[in-house]
């Protein structure tokens, strides 16, 4: 019998969409108890959102001033203390939040971590990608120890809503360090959907040629209700900010529909999109590797094609 604790990522107001995906991973382990830990300050609203995830048994709210912002060194001792209260598994989302926090939890518990769980093959047996997705490794966590892992979000569907778990206040007597101060989060304000949870994503590459030209993609994305992403080449060229990067070194995403526009398709980009539903590639080079994995390809000048798609969408 497994009992799984999931660490919730949130911004103080909204639960991260990855938590419901990590919950699917927890349910695949065969959890007969699936609890979610929400560490925050005045985070009752977030705890209520977690309680609505289907399959969640209980939400544990650790509401205290030290948790006002997510600092791994402060959260880890609390998560490790909670996890030691009889859980067999503790999972986080494989986002920058989970990647920062969970190895600290594992180290405190003295156990290895299974990063980027793609599938569950048994209570202690998991598949995970290595070598930038060029191979899949099956690993087994050691018997007799708690399992710590992160769930690769693109591999898991979001668990449904409609749950009605109890929210309980929780406390730990873990000692918290004061060597780390959280100063600020500078985020690019965007009205568009979040890249990691959007069902449609429009991404551009170096062929866009300038940051001004990206407005073509923003216009199309707004018409489609899509998020906008970019290849590493476009980020490195300075056309867009790094939080838009899709790929092994950026975000790994799995939208239902993905437009790769002016993206040649370097391995590291393909790694970030291979779980997408339908991939549409638009590129003037018919030999571009992106066409090897695209479901629908269109060879030609993006500056002619994108406005034509825009017009077709508006006309429909």
């Amino acid at each position: 019998m497994s009992s799984v604790l999931i660490v919730a990522e949130h911004d103080g107001q909204t639960l991260h969409a990855g938590v419901a995906r990590a919950a699917s991973c927890g349910l695949a382990i065969g959890a007969d108890r699936l609890d979610v830990a929400v560490l925050g300050l005045d985070c009752e609203g977030v705890a209520q959102q977690a309680a609505r995830i289907e399959g969640v048994s209980r939400v544990l709210s650790l509401d205290r001033s030290e948790n006002a912002n997510p600092v791994a060194a402060i959260q880890a001792p609390q998560v490790a203390a909670l996890a030691s209260q009889g859980y067999s598994h503790v999972l986080g989302p494989s986002t920058t939040f989970g990647k920062d926090l969970m190895p600290r939890v594992a180290a405190l518990l003295g156990v290895p971590q299974v990063s980027d769980i793609m599938s569950v093959e048994g209570e202690r047996r998991f598949k995970r990608p290595i070598y930038a997705g060029n191979a899949v490794l099956t690993v087994e966590a050691p018997a007799g120890h708690i399992v710590v892992g992160t769930a690769r979000l693109a591999s898991w569907p979001a668990a449904g809503e409609g749950g009605d778990a109890a929210v309980e206040g929780a406390q730990t007597d873990a000692e918290l360090p004061d060597h780390t101060s959280w100063l600020e989060l500078k985020s690019a304000e965007s009205e568009r959907p979040d890249l990691q949870s959007a069902s449609v994503v429009v991404s551009g590459g170096r062929a866009l040629g300038s940051s001004e030209n990206f407005s073509l993609l923003y216009d199309l994305a707004d018409r489609l209700g899509a998020a906008v992403g970019a290849s590493r080449a476009a980020v490195d060229a300075g056309y867009v900010s790094n939080d838009m990067q899709v790929g092994q070194t950026g975000k790994i995403i799995a939208p239902d529909l993905y437009f790769a526009i002016g993206i040649s398709g370097a391995i590291q980009h393909l790694t970030g999109i291979k779980d997408a539903g339908v991939i549409v590639a638009i590129n003037k080079d018919p030999e571009a590797p992106i066409f090897e994995i695209a479901d629908i390809g269109l060879v030609g000048d993006l500056f002619a094609i994108v406005p034509e798609i825009q017009a077709a969408v508006e006309g429909s």
């Binding site: 290895p112 299974v114 047996r125 990608p129 997705g133 060029n134 191979a135 899949v136 490794l137 099956t138 690993v139 087994e140 966590a141 050691p142 291979k274 991939i279 018919p286 066409f291 090897e292 994995i293 695209a294 479901d295 629908i296 390809g297 269109l298 060879v299």
Partner: peptide, 17 residues
């Protein structure tokens, strides 16, 4: 952890142009 098996990733099928 114990490494049990290595396998190539699932390939997407080539689509249409």
């Amino acid at each position: 952890l114990k490494a049990l098996a290595y396998e190539p990733p699932a390939q997407r099928e080539k689509g249409v142009v």
